[in-house]
Design a binder for these strands. Sequence first.
DNA 1: TTGACAATTAGGACTAAATCCTATTTAATC
DNA 2: GATTAAATAGGATTTAGTCCTAATTGTCAA
Lengths: 139, 139
Amino acid sequence: MEEFYAQCRANNLKITPQRVAVYKALSSSLSHPSADQIHKVLKKEFPNISLDTVNRTLVTFAKAGMIDVVEGHGDPRRFDPNRGTHHHFYCISCREIFDIHDSALDRIPVSPELEKKFTITGKRICLSGYCDKCRSRNQ
Amino acid sequence: MEEFYAQCRANNLKITPQRVAVYKALSSSLSHPSADQIHKVLKKEFPNISLDTVNRTLVTFAKAGMIDVVEGHGDPRRFDPNRGTHHHFYCISCREIFDIHDSALDRIPVSPELEKKFTITGKRICLSGYCDKCRSRNQ
DNA sequence: TTGACAATTAGGACTAAATCCTATTTAATC
DNA sequence: GATTAAATAGGATTTAGTCCTAATTGTCAA
């Protein structure tokens, strides 16, 4: 928790009871919850915390690099006609997806145990960050 | 296009003008469009094609393995407190995300050109398919 | 400790994605 | 060409996410 306070200070984020609660709730979660799921949990302790605050707080933490946004960025569902092996770079600013073709990335060593545990239909390396345009725009 | 017809037959999907149009539109798209974007394009040719049909058709194609759903599965945004290197398996049936810790997967060889082209803040291997529960349930 | 200010929050309104429902239409099969 | 199950249009509904405004609160400096 001490690290949380330090990270807040480093990012000029005020330490509010809501932020502390959101961080604790996410940290103690075993799954990969949505804002709504965390909101439901926090309602018990803070009956009038708003969903907007929970969501905004989580996005703020993610932007500060304190937590991650994972599969499902909150964008609409998107499709790819290319079923050949290739990879993606996702720009977290403009939300564009860029194809990456690099044979060095194609060999993903999935262990036999993993293949046994799951029926794997998709394997892809997902890179994320800022594309060239957004990088220069934000400076 | 001939392959499209064959895939439809193999999956018992009726070949309708709408499905042909959706497939053509996606195939000729350079980006990774959403259902809404494809719907807007098709409106010009089929003024009264519905968004539901476009979306349903795309999901149907994806389930048949004819196209892919990429970053953003249409799920709500989800968060991960664990910023250490790890990977994810996403179940396309129950939508649960499972953590995968496997050091063999950690070495993702991102080329210097790629690092130059983008500011990469996240690297992760995204596996998808069916988890154990859903695999057995669907049989 | 207090006061001032900028940041943050609650709550409701709003927008947009996705799904559901039902009547109608249509592709496939014989 | 007739039959039937599948697919579609269109509108309604649900839900995620964002926006807006007034009220509140954390921080910093005096």
